[in-house]
Simulated scan of single mutants.
Amino acid sequence: MPTPETSPAGDPLSSLSYEEARDELIRVVGELEQGAATLEESIALWERGEALARHCEEWLIGAKARLDAARAGAGVGAAERE
C-alpha cells in the first residue's frame, strides 16, 4: 500500500513534477468529494492530499525564489550598464 510520501506506483513523492503532483491532488480531492471511500480509505486519501499539497507548495516556493534571484540579477546587470 502506498504511503502519503510515495505514489501509487511506490515512487517517492519527491520524484513527481509540480504538474504530476497537482494532477494527482486534483484526483485525490475528487475522490474525497465523491464520498464513496471507506473511512480508512478517506484517511489515506486525506494524508496523500496533504503530502501532495506540501510538495506543490515547495515547488512554488522554489520557483518564486528562482524568479526573485533572476530579477535581482537582472537589476544588478541593468545598474552596471548605466
Rank of each mutant, 00 (worst) to 15 (best):
A69L: 13
D68Q: 12
C56A: 10
L60E: 14
H55W: 13
R54E: 13
D68V: 04
I43W: 00
R48T: 07
E58H: 08
E40Q: 10
A70M: 13
E57V: 05
G62V: 08
A44Q: 00
L52F: 12
V76G: 07
A72K: 10
G49H: 01
A37Q: 07
I43D: 03
V76L: 14
A65M: 09
T38V: 01
A63M: 13
E47R: 00
D68M: 06
I61H: 14
E50A: 09
E57A: 13
G49V: 08
L39Y: 10
T38W: 07
I43V: 05
E58S: 11
K64V: 06
A37W: 09
A69Q: 12
W46R: 00
H55Y: 01
L60P: 05
A53W: 08
A63S: 09
C56F: 04
A74W: 11
L67I: 08
R66V: 10
T38Q: 02
A44F: 00
A70L: 15
L45A: 03
I43R: 05
C56E: 08
L60M: 14
L52G: 04
E41W: 04
A74L: 15
L52A: 09
A72H: 06
A44G: 06
A51N: 01
A74H: 13
A63P: 02
A51C: 02
A70I: 15
R66G: 05
L52R: 07
R48I: 02
E41F: 01
A51K: 02
G75A: 11
R54V: 09
A69H: 08
G73Q: 15
G75F: 08
R66L: 15
G73A: 15
L67S: 03
W59F: 14
A65L: 08
A72G: 07
R54A: 11
L39C: 02
A63K: 08
V76T: 12
A65V: 00
A53H: 14
L67F: 06
E58K: 12
I61V: 12
T38M: 09
A37H: 09
A70H: 05
E57M: 13
G49P: 01
K64D: 06
E50M: 03
R71T: 00
R66N: 11
H55L: 15
R66M: 14
G73P: 02
E50N: 06
A37S: 11
R54D: 12
E58F: 02
